[in-house]
């Protein structure tokens, strides 16, 4: 575990809805955190009463417990006119925060876990795609990913081959870009912001920036919740609970290229919080 590294990242700690429910206690990197105030003026304190810095970005309240925090990344698509921004609340999962991110990057499980929605048998083949670590901003990117999807989004009218791109801008955030069914030249953006409560438990805050003016908010959120809760029961049953970074621990297949790159990238930067790194 490398708490020192993890302390200097920013994490989602609240959204507007959760603040409207009143003060709340939560956890971040193993420690208790007190959340109160309003969305305009959130008050975030650690267990000793120290005020923690906050910033509002991507419809969520972010905080950090580090002394020298790295700057929070940007998701420029969030500012594009015409997109609908959809915060989806949070879901608690008893798994490593890194496993939650890794699962989000994996397409091979679609036909089996999101049957008849994000995938279907017999269309289980993952075509070769491209994975790289972009040096200029030190992010993991997977591009040219293609997959057949019976119901790619709430806005989809039927099955389509969806183009995907994945981006990991920070160890506990994953962003995906996918073909927008009613606007095939554009891409929907779906993100998970993972709040690490401990190395083995996390709160996951999904957020979407979509081209969809028609679908009611409740339907958009519930589509996302349906998908994510299908993953949750799988995630809670993965063993070992922490993410192994040693490639000998879990044999990768070709479709796992993104996961291999993500694990290497974590290892390189020393982001071991939530990782099984006993052989490192």
């Amino acid at each position: 575990m490398s708490l020192a590294y993890a302390r200097n990242d920013w994490y989602v700690i609240a959204d507007r809805n959760s603040l409207e429910q009143g003060p709340r206690r939560t956890r971040l990197l193993g420690d208790e955190i007190h959340v109160s105030g309003s969305y305009a003026h959130p008050v975030i304190k650690d267990a000793s009463g120290r005020m923690l810095p906050t910033q509002i970005k991507f419809d969520h309240v972010w905080t950090t417990v580090g002394d020298r925090p790295r700057p929070l990344f940007d998701i420029p698509e969030g500012n594009e006119p015409g997109r609908r921004l959809v915060p989806c609340g949070m879901v608690r999962v008893k798994c490593s925060p890194l496993r939650a991110v890794e699962n989000f990057l994996d397409i091979a499980h679609f036909p089996f876990v999101h049957t008849d929605v994000l995938g279907a048998e017999p269309y289980t083949e993952v075509e070769p795609y491209k994975v790289e670590i972009r040096e200029q901003n030190d992010e993991v990117w997977a591009t040219k990913v293609k997959f057949f999807q019976p119901l790619a989004a709430k806005s989809a009218a039927g099955g389509i081959t969806t183009d995907y791109e994945y981006r990991v801008p920070a160890p506990t955030t994953a962003v995906l870009y996918k073909t927008c069914p009613p606007k095939p030249e554009a891409q929907d953006v779906i993100t998970i912001f993972v709040q690490p409560r401990s190395e083995t438990e996390c709160d996951v805050w999904p957020w979407m920036a979509l081209y969809d003016d028609d679908t009611p908010y409740a339907d958009l959120v519930q589509f996302q919740q349906m998908i994510f809760l299908q993953d949750r029961s799988i995630l809670e049953n993965q063993r070992p609970i922490k993410l192994p970074l040693d490639p000998r621990m879990e044999i990768p297949t070709r479709s796992d290229l993104t996961s291999v790159a993500y694990r290497r990238w974590l290892k390189k930067r020393g982001a071991f919080y939530g990782a099984l790194a006993e052989t490192l």
């Binding site: 959204d15 959760s18 989806c88 609340g89 949070m90 908010y217 409740a218 959120v221 519930q222 919740q225």
Partner: peptide, 10 residues
């Protein structure tokens, strides 16, 4: 009819 039970408490 989808009701936003969570996060909206509809």
């Amino acid at each position: 009819v989808a009701i936003d039970f969570y996060p909206g408490y509809e």
